Amino acid sequence: TDCSIVSFLARLGCSSCLDYFTTQGLTTIYQIEHYSMDDLASLKIPEQFRHAIWKGILDHRQLHEF
C-alpha cells in the first residue's frame, strides 16, 4: 500500500493539512507513526483535524505491530 502522507491524509479526509507535514520534510507515514497528540499540535495542525489524524496514526500502528 501507499505509505505517503499524501494518501494517508486523503484517506482520512484531511488533505488540507498536507502543508503542515511537508514544510517539516515529512513525506511518509513511517516518519510520523510514533507521533503523539502533542507532536501534531506542535505542527500547528488545526484541532478539528488533529483527532482524525491521531486516530489514523493509531490505526496504522495497530496494522503494523507484529
Rank of each mutant, 00 (worst) to 15 (best):
D39H: 04
S4R: 06
T23E: 13
D59L: 08
W54C: 03
R50N: 04
D38M: 15
S15G: 09
A52W: 08
I32G: 01
S42W: 06
P46R: 02
D2R: 04
T28C: 04
S16H: 09
L43P: 02
S4H: 06
I32K: 01
A52D: 08
Q62F: 06
T27G: 05
Q48L: 09
D38H: 04
L58S: 14
T22M: 06
C17Y: 03
L12A: 08
S42D: 15
Q24Y: 05
S4C: 04
Q48T: 12
T1Q: 11
K44S: 13
F8D: 00
H34E: 14
G13D: 15
C3P: 10
I5H: 02
S36F: 03
T28N: 07
L58W: 10
R61A: 11
Y35Q: 03
H60E: 07
Y30W: 09
M37E: 13
C17F: 03
D38W: 07
S36V: 07
D2F: 04
L18S: 13
Q31D: 13
R50H: 11
I29L: 12
T27H: 14
T22N: 08
L9D: 02
H34N: 15
C14M: 13
I32M: 04
G56F: 02
A10S: 06
E33S: 09
I32D: 01
C3S: 13
I5V: 06
I45R: 00
E33H: 10
Y30F: 06
S7Q: 08
I53F: 00
I53S: 00
T22E: 13
E33V: 13
T1N: 10
A41C: 15
C3Q: 11
H51D: 12
H51Y: 08
I57R: 02
W54Q: 05
F8K: 00
I53T: 01
F66P: 15
V6E: 08
I45W: 00
V6P: 07
D39Q: 11
H60M: 13
T28D: 12
H60V: 14
Y30K: 14
Y20W: 06
Q24H: 13
S7F: 07
S42M: 14
Y30I: 10
Q24L: 07
S36M: 06
D19K: 12
K55Q: 11
H60T: 12
I29D: 03
T27Q: 10
T28Y: 09
L63I: 11
L9Y: 01
Q62V: 09
M37A: 09
R11N: 07
I57E: 01
Y20L: 10
L43R: 03
D19E: 13
R50Y: 04
F66S: 13
S16G: 12
C17E: 03
A52R: 14
D2A: 05
Q31I: 01
Y35S: 03
H51P: 11
T22H: 10
R11F: 03
I57Y: 00
A41Q: 14
K44I: 03
A41N: 12
C3Y: 14
F49Q: 12
Q48E: 15
R50F: 05
T1C: 09
I29R: 03
H60C: 14
I53E: 01
A52N: 07
I53L: 06
L40P: 01
T22S: 11
I5Y: 00
R50A: 07
L26F: 06
T27C: 05
S4L: 11
R50E: 05
Q24E: 10
S15A: 10
I29K: 03
L18W: 04
Q24K: 13
E47A: 13
I32F: 04
T23V: 10
S36L: 04
T28G: 08
K44C: 09
T28K: 11
S42T: 14
S7E: 12
S16A: 11
D59E: 14
L43M: 06
I32W: 01
D19G: 11
L12H: 06
C3I: 11
I5D: 00
T28P: 01
Q24T: 09
K44W: 05
G25Q: 06
D59I: 07
T1I: 14
R61L: 08
R11H: 05
